[in-house]
Design a protein around this nucleic acid. Structure first.
Lengths: 247, 247
DNA sequence: TACACTAATTGTAATTAATACAAAAAGTAT
DNA sequence: ATACTTTTTGTATTAATTACAATTAGTGTA
C-alpha cells in the first residue's frame, strides 16, 4: 500500500492537452468536516470548535482535519469524531463535497462533509492541541464560522432532515427503552414541525421494528407510558423495501 | 489565485501529532466521474467510454478526468460532459465522493461522482485522445468497468431515482411540448415501476407547473393527446415548499 | 359517409388513509 | 377516595387511493 504514492510521471487519466504537468495534479489535499448534531430534551445543537491555529485562528469552525495519505474518507471522519468526543461506532454519513478553488487560503483543499447525530449528554467535548475550545451551540444561534463552514452546516442540516426519516440514526439519541412521546418529540425537534399525538401513534403502530415491551414507566405522576425498543433485525426488511417515515 | 498553490510548509489544519510532514498531504489528486444517463423511448442508458490509456486501458469506464488545480468541481464535471457530447447547460448533480485508499493504482485519487440525464438522440458521443470509443449502454447490460466505477454507477442510478421526483432534470429528455403519456412513460422507465394511466393523470392534474397548451397531437391514428409544457417560474414556488412527486 | 380502430380522457364505486377531536385509562400525590 | 396529569383508545368526517369501466376524438378504410 505504501508505494501507492510512488507516482510515475506518466499520464494518469488522460493525455495532457492543456500542458499541465501531471505533477501539478498531485499537489492538492482533502479534508473531512464533521457536522456533529446533538439532541437533548427537544433541543438540536451542533458541536463547534474554536480554532487554535491559522488560518482563521480563534474562529469557531466545524471540527475537521486533513485526510491522511493512507486513510479512507470514512475513517478520517470517524477519527475526527473520536478525537473530539471519544465516541466510536456512531455512524457518520457523507453528505456533500465542497471544492471551490479558493475555499482554503493555504492551497487547494476540497472537503468532504459528514454528519452524525449524538445525545448531548453522552459527550464531554474535548479541547485539543488543534482546538482551543469545543462547545455545543444551539442550531438557532450559530456564530460566524471559518472557511465555508456556514454553508456546509446549512447543507448538512437539510440533509439531517432527509436522513432521519429513512435511516435509524436517531437510535443514538434515545434511551434503549423509550416512550412514544420521546420518539415523537425527537422527530418534532429535528423536522421542526408538530404532530397530533393520537395520529402520530396510529402511524407508528403499524411499524414492526418499533417493538412494544412488557414494561412501563414508573415514578411518573401520570399514567405511565409503555416502553418501546428499536429492533435492527426487523428494520433490515423495511430498509430493503425502501421504507421512509411519511409524517 | 495562482499563488494558492505556493504552499507554506507550516501547519495547515492541525499540529502534526502523527509526524507526517505537511507536504505529504498535498500529494493527492481528485477527479470527477460523470454518470451520463440517456433516455430514449422507454429505455434508460448510460454513456461509457473505452479507455485509451493505462491504467485499465481498453476497459469500459465512466467518463471522468482529474480536476485541474484552478478548476471548481462543478466546472470539471461540466467540462467532461462537454468534451464528450458538446452539450452545455445540462445540469450536473453531485452525488457522492468515493475515496478508498487503493481505488486508483497510480496514487491517492478520490473522485467526486456527478450525474446528468440527457436525451440519447441529442448526442453523437465523441471518441477523443483519452477515449478510444464512447457508446451508450443499456442500464440492463453493463460490461465490466474500470476502477470502482461499477459501484459509482449503482449509487448514481439510485440517486437518479431520488432526484427525478424532486428536480426537473427530466425536462432535458422530453420535447418542449409533450403528452402526459410521454411524461408517464419516462417516469415509469426511470423509476422502474408502472402506473395506472387514469390515476397518474389525476395526480398530475393538480400540478400547476405542468401547463396544458391549446394544442394537440396531429397525424396519430387515435384520439390526439393534449400537449403540455413545463413552466419553470411556477415550479420555483413548488420547489420552495419542498415539492416532490409522490407516485 | 359510416364504421372500425386506437389511445386519450373522464367517471365511478369501493377501499383506505388522514385529520381533528373527544373520551377513557392508569398511574402518583394528597 | 379523589384530584391530577399524560397516555391511550376511539370516532366521525373528510380526503386520497385504487381498480376499473365508459366515453371521446381523431385517423384510416369500406
Amino acid at each position: 500500500m505504501r508505494n501507492a504514492l510512488d507516482l510515475s510521471k506518466t499520464s494518469v487519466e488522460k493525455d495532457d492537452i492543456y500542458s499541465i504537468p501531471i505533477d501539478a495534479f498531485f499537489k492538492s489535499a482533502f479534508s473531512v468536516d464533521c457536522v456533529i448534531f446533538g439532541y437533548h430534551e427537544k433541543e438540536l445543537k451542533v458541536l463547534l470548535i474554536q480554532r487554535g491555529t491559522d488560518p482563521y485562528e480563534d474562529f469557531w469552525a466545524l471540527p475537521g482535519d486533513l485526510v491522511y495519505p493512507y486513510e479512507d474518507l470514512d475513517a478520517a471522519a470517524a477519527r475526527v469524531l473520536n478525537d473530539l468526543t471519544t465516541l466510536h461506532e456512531i455512524p457518520m454519513r457523507q453528505v456533500h463535497t465542497f471544492g471551490k478553488v479558493d475555499r482554503h487560503p493555504l492551497g487547494r483543499v476540497i472537503t468532504v462533509a459528514y454528519l452524525a447525530l449524538v445525545e448531548v449528554q453522552d459527550i464531554a467535548p474535548l479541547a485539543s492541541n488543534w482546538a482551543k475550545d469545543a462547545k455545543w451551540h444551539s442550531i438557532k444561534r450559530i456564530p460566524k464560522l471559518a472557511f465555508d463552514h456556514k454553508q456546509i452546516l446549512q447543507e448538512c442540516h437539510k440533509a439531517l432532515k432527509e436522513i432521519i426519516v429513512s435511516e435509524p440514526i436517531w437510535t443514538t439519541v434515545l434511551p434503549k427503552k423509550f416512550t412514544l412521546t420521546q420518539f415523537q418529540e425527537m422527530f418534532e425537534t429535528i423536522l421542526q414541525r408538530e404532530f397530533d399525538k393520537g395520529n402520530f401513534r396510529k402511524k407508528i403502530s403499524g411499524v414492526k421494528f418499533l417493538k412494544q415491551l412488557d414494561e412501563a414507566q414508573t415514578n411518573v405522576r401520570h399514567r405511565p407510558s409503555a416502553l418501546y425498543k428499536f429492533d435492527p433485525k426487523l428494520f433490515k426488511a423495511y430498509k430493503e423495501k425502501g421504507f421512509v417515515f411519511e409524517f
